[in-house]
Design a protein around this nucleic acid. Structure first.
Lengths: 257, 257
DNA sequence: GCCGCCAACTGGCTTAAGCCAGCTTCGATG
DNA sequence: CATCGAAGCTGGCTTAAGCCAGTTGGCGGC
């Protein structure tokens, strides 16, 4: 109570000074921070300590190191929001346009979707539960990558019980590799009646860091999407994983009940 | 291409071994990891390097250090989801029960809400924009903290234009400090017609780490809630910040348009 | 039986020195 | 004029040693 300013270890004090400079605007997006050796000399400390300070800023997502070049301010870019009409009939039926593509185009960036694989697998436990599958029942797994200006933005892994597409044109793995599938379910006798979404956030796995070329210190948003038919039965689950520094989600709902 | 296993620095190799042990289940939730000095001896490395390895696991949110005690496995606890009916009329009107309290009780934990402050301030830019306010117009700011079993789970900062509550019973700051306010707007001639929510995720600020007693390496979910009246005018904005390791969000919507 | 202290653990953080690897620049060489 | 390469910067990571600050448990004294 008596001493307002807490005693901070040097590394945190240096980090705080740099953070303040960024917040004040003295250092803008893309500007280079002082080098480790610089900071160490300036604050009469060991290089390790200066390094630690820069590490703190990176862990906060405020800065990003580039080996051999330096550490640079990295301010949050404006969010690319996945808007509230992303599952509208228009979005679903627009030929070849997934809701993601619509959003990206609206932002004036170039969308690009790539299907990396279509396989038949055992579903993860949380997916199996949402699809109401018993152990041992297989699903088709489709992995889609979404880019904006060739920068990877999100991954979507879709799971469909084999029973759903059995005997239909979608059963061909080739067919499943192209375009949005939301628009095709109606033809299969599975009109989408409700959509359930579960949102959480976490730190990325090492694979996701590599795949999404994410800066360290940035979380991912995980969106578990479930499509339900008129009887409330789930027939498709997609797990979207997206960089939280460039993505956000919008929901807009009437209030009733 | 030739060498599948990449060359990893020792700290990352050690972290990987520990991570594997956790994933295999050899180390369960709450179990103590080897101490820094232990690891250093076992892997014939410097204590700093072992420390770095433990730091990596903490940054991934898999472990948590306790000064003087040790480093412990910290598996994600089951999500406390904010369910899809959290804005139903029932939730709003249940006396003294905010949607959050309902959710927590459903999980068998003891809810507790605390209003830390009610003040009149200039709104942050993003809030002002959503409320359609010109520069200089003031808002009432209410800061609420939400606990489950006395553990802080989320903060909600509500902004209401002074014009909305002017001359009403809610204009008293005392009144605004108690209970949920969603149920009171109707009496003021502001029935909630639509709710807009914008979801993003980010790393917590140092203040949030302290306030929410968060382990390092865990992101927060930021939910910007906007209440709209029948004419689509926003009359209230609340920014919720919640620990992403124990919170999630559900959305359930009919498909139309 | 209780209390208080102390020893032996734990992590937190720093110093100082060094080697490695990536990037940039500039100048010498063809 | 183009190209190549070395110098000098950058971060990445490690070692070895040390002091500080929490936690725990046991041992002694009351």
């Amino acid at each position: 109570m008596s001493d307002q300013r807490e005693r901070q270890p040097p590394s945190r004090r240096i980090a705080e000074k740099l953070r303040a400079a960024i917040m004040r605007g003295d250092l803008g997006d893309g500007d280079q921070l002082p080098s480790e050796r610089d900071l160490a000399a300036r604050y009469a400390t060991a290089r390790n300590t200066a390094r630690e300070a820069l590490g703190i800023l990176q862990a906060e997502g405020l800065a990003q190191a580039q080996h051999g070049r330096g550490v640079f301010v990295r301010l949050r870019r404006p969010l690319m929001r996945m808007g509230r009409d992303r599952y509208s009939r228009r979005a679903r039926n627009e030929t070849g346009l997934s809701p993601f593509r619509i959003e990206v185009e609206r932002q004036g960036r170039t969308p690009h979707t790539e299907c990396r694989s279509v396989t038949t697998v055992q579903p993860p436990a949380d997916v199996a539960q949402r699809l109401g599958l018993d152990a041992g029942q297989e699903v088709i797994r489709r992995e889609n990558w979404y880019f904006a200006d060739d920068e990877p933005m999100q991954v979507g892994v879709t799971y469909i019980p084999t029973a759903v597409v059995e005997g239909s044109p979608l059963a061909s793995e080739k067919k499943l590799g192209r375009g949005s599938i939301y628009q095709r379910f109606e033809d299969l006798g599975y009109p989408i009646a409700r959509i359930r979404e579960e949102v959480s956030a976490r730190m990325p796995t090492p694979e996701e860091v590599k795949g999404l070329s994410m800066p360290p210190g940035v979380p991912v948003i995980e969106l578990l999407h479930t499509s339900l038919d008129g009887d409330g039965r789930a027939f498709e689950v997609t797990r979207f994983v997206m960089r939280a520094d460039v993505n956000g989600l919008d929901y807009d709902m009437p209030v009733e009940d």
